[in-house]
């Protein structure tokens, strides 16, 4: 038995190494002067210690401004997608109507379409109505991008809320809108917060829309912003800064993981499958 346990731990150890090594390596290099990258053989342990990469990032790009843009866009889009998604889910799951399967299935279907396929038509539309470089240029399409998952998850959640509760609400004289706001939403806070986290992460990390719809340098989001720290050729890249910036943009997400790891995992594995 000892022998078997040992094998399992060896396997798990290798796997952790595979996943964590790149991260260890990054954190290490983010505190090393840029010359560290030129060491041969490579350095696997700290030799010098400096914050200059982190401070340097703020000199190379307006990271604080980018972070503000990202926060505005991701928060607004998360709010809108939760609002509209939960409304649609309520419509689909509680108010039975003909064509509900068609509505839900076409929504799910669209969820599978890569956002990038729609990029030119949306770009054209935004440039025609002068909406490029406006926060709305990202908030609106992100909201659409979040709708399929949000609606799907919320509809399933609503269907598991006991019907007696809804009957009681209508006996008490609550309207359909009142039931949604006063009963459904408070009851589904766990599911809502899970979806909110997943949506936020997706919006925070989005690249192709942010790159295309926000050409103005002041309007960039962090994910696009960090891709701009570079030199003409790779050997001129400020590697220390790139790595420090890459680590910094994941901070909000890492905090979320620490606060709500269980929620995120349950959300990501939401595609439960019947045997």
């Amino acid at each position: 038995m000892m022998n078997r346990n040992f094998k399992i731990y060896l396997g798990v150890g290798l796997m952790a190494l595979y996943c964590l090594f790149p991260i260890y390596f990054l954190v290490l290099y983010s505190f090393e002067p840029s010359e560290a990258a030129y060491h041969s053989p490579p350095v696997f342990y700290p030799i010098a210690f400096t914050f200059s990469n982190y401070t340097g990032v703020f000199k190379s790009i307006p990271l604080a401004r980018y972070a503000l843009n990202s926060i505005i866009v991701a928060t607004s889009a998360t709010f809108l997608t939760l609002l509209f998604g939960s409304m649609a889910a309520y419509g689909v799951s509680v108010l039975k109507f003909r064509g509900r399967d068609l509505f839900l299935n076409s929504l799910i279907l669209l969820g599978f379409f890569p956002a990038a396929t729609m990029i030119f038509p949306i770009y054209k539309m935004f440039s025609d109505i002068n909406l490029l470089n406006n926060y709305l240029a990202l908030i609106l399409p992100y909201t659409v991008g979040g709708l399929p998952l949000t609606t799907w998850v919320m509809a399933t959640y609503f269907e598991n809320i006991p019907k007696d509760l809804l009957d009681a609400a209508s006996v008490d004289g609550l309207s359909i809108g009142g039931t949604y706001a006063k009963i459904m939403i408070p009851l589904s806070l766990p599911a809502l917060s899970t979806v909110a986290i997943l949506d936020f992460i997706a919006f925070w990390n989005e690249f192709i829309y942010a790159l295309t719809f926000m050409p103005d340098s002041n309007m960039r989001t962090v994910t696009v912003g960090i891709s701009l720290i570079s030199g003409r050729f790779t050997y001129q890249y400020p590697w220390g800064q790139i790595i420090a910036a890459a680590l910094m943009v994941t901070i909000p997400l890492v905090i979320m993981v620490f606060v709500a790891q269980e929620k995120i995992i349950s959300g990501l594995t939401a595609g439960a499958v019947k045997g």
Binding site: M15, A16, C19, I243
Partner: peptide, 22 residues
């Protein structure tokens, strides 16, 4: 271990791409 496997998923693709270029 779960967190270790999970982190690559959280990193924005931009950051991951820059890191892998390096």
């Amino acid at each position: 271990f779960e967190l270790g496997l999970f982190y690559p998923l959280l990193i924005p693709m931009t950051a991951a791409a820059m890191i892998w270029v390096f």
